[in-house]
Each structure stands twice: as C-alpha cells, then as structure tokens.
Design a binder for these strands. Structure first.
Lengths: 136, 136
DNA sequence: AATAAACATATTTATCCGCTATGTTAGTGG
DNA sequence: CCACTAACATAGCGGATAAATATGTTTATT
C-alpha cells in the first residue's frame, strides 16, 4: 500500500519547477541538486512526464524543463497515474487485469472498488497549486 | 499502491470461517481447499492472526481455527493493519520510519497524512459482517 | 568546434512478495 | 501408549519489481 519514489519524486520536482517558474527552462541538474535526488534517476521519471505533455524539455545549452500548464491546472491524480501506472489498491482492479474467476461472488471486490474510487477522487481534487500553498 | 495477497487472503479466510461458523474448529486444510490457496502459505498468514487474538488455533485431531469475536466486532482495518503491517501510503509515514530531514517544509507530507487518515478510516468503518452481507 | 543538457537504452543492485520445504509440538482416538 | 492429525515454527528460494547506475547519442547554444 505504497506510493513509490517515482510518484513522490515527480511531485516534488513539479512543485520545484512551479516555484522557480519564470517561463525559461530549468536544467535537471539544478532540480536534482535542490531536491537531493540522483540526476540520472530523475531523467527516467521526467521522461514519462514529457511524453505525456506535462513538461516540455529543451535540449542544449540553456535547456531544461518547463511546465506546460499552470500549477492550478495540474492535478496530483493525473501525475500519479502517469508515474505509478495505476492507483488501484488490488491487482484485480488494475487496468489490464485478467478477470478473476471468483469476481462474481467475491465478498471483498465491492470494497476494493469503493476504495479505488475514493483514492482517485482524493488525488484528483488536489492540484499542484494546492500543495504549494500548503493544505490542511 | 497495493494491498498484498496476505491481507486479501486473510479477509477471505476470515469470511469463510465466519460463514461456516458453528463454534467448532475448522481445519486449515478445508479452508485452503475452498479458497484455493496454498496451505503452507495460509499457515503463515494465520499465525499473525492467532498471535493477535483474532483467531484461536486448536492443535491435534479435530483441531483447526475459530474466530474469537463475532463478524460484527471485527473491522477490516484491524485485520489489514495486522497482515499488511501498515497501511501508510508512503514510507515516510510508516510506524518505525526514520524522520525525514525534509519533513518540516515538505510540501507533500500533509497530503500523505490526510490520505493515511482517509484510508484507515475507510477500512475501520467496515466489519467482516458488512462484507458478508455484501456492501455497496 | 566546444560545450551543455536532454534523450535513449541497458544493466546492476537491492528489496520484497509469494510460496515451498522441513521439522516440531500438541492434542485425539484406537 | 502409539499412531495420527493438525497447528506451530523457522528457513530459504525464485521471480518480480523498485531504485538507481552506466554508457552513449542527439540537439541546441556560444
């Protein structure tokens, strides 16, 4: 029942980017240093975010990363689903899950489904901007 | 973000026990067969439940397992915390977590804490009996 | 041309999950 | 009392996944 470092790092990096934001590109090196995360590991994580148009990457000298949207438009849920792959609390509910033979009269499946909805809704209702200003 | 087989199997076994319940002991062999779970693996899982007084185990011929409480008195939360060890959504919030140096001005920690409360509350408000009668 | 930085792919390392194996202890029935 | 049953206990294994490294390529700036 854990969110991996991928998702957690991704959120931290995006917040970092949003805080530094002045419409020019910020090199990964800087972010990695500030956040104390391995550069190479971060590259892997950000790749997914670039491919899914959360970030744009600019190569070469003066290059770096930049948010494509404002922090208000980015939900935590959308980011975590990208980096974690899935937020389903049980394998039975994963996107490409082989349907279980017991599913029809499984006494626990409805509960997992309810939790799945609850968790996704929770994350969908939080934006990067919310995190930045500090929620309670 | 997954509940492991330990927790899922534990719930299924407990429901199974509650359904068969007639105050005598039910051997693990029977349950394992009905639920199509490896006997030896189940032994491992039930051990924790016995130690924590959810079940009582009786050895020897005619032995087996029996619930110590009624299905109405057993919350899903209490069972999952035993089998999963912890329901915390991030390592930072685990029971014996080394406190992170970033914790004080971590922009995401409050969110993880809120989710942690939400998830625990969700499971605490469901009893075995609820699962048996089928919730929506 | 030299340099900076993103992009790409493969490999390593470590940890954990799911399960198996082997053996011991404690009851019951014949 | 002995055979049998079934819970209890501990150790270990194989595969998958997580976390991180390593190496190299491409693209842009100066």
């Amino acid at each position: 029942m854990k969110i991996s470092t991928k998702g957690r790092y991704a959120l931290r990096v995006l917040i970092d980017l949003a805080e530094q934001q002045n419409d020019n590109f910020i090199p990964l090196k800087e972010i990695a240093a500030r956040q104390e995360i391995s550069e190479k590991y971060l590259e892997n994580i950000l790749k997914v975010l670039v491919h899914n148009n959360v970030l744009t990457g600019m190569r070469g000298k003066g290059g770096g990363y930049r948010l494509t949207k404002s922090a208000e438009e980015l939900s935590v849920g959308s980011i975590l689903r990208l980096t974690e792959g899935d937020l389903a609390p049980v394998t039975c509910l994963e996107h490409e899950a082989a349907l279980c033979s017991r599913a029809e009269n499984c006494r626990t499946l409805p509960m997992w489904k309810n939790l799945n909805v609850l968790v996704n809704r929770f994350f969908d209702n939080i934006t990067l901007a919310d995190l930045m200003e500090g929620l309670e």
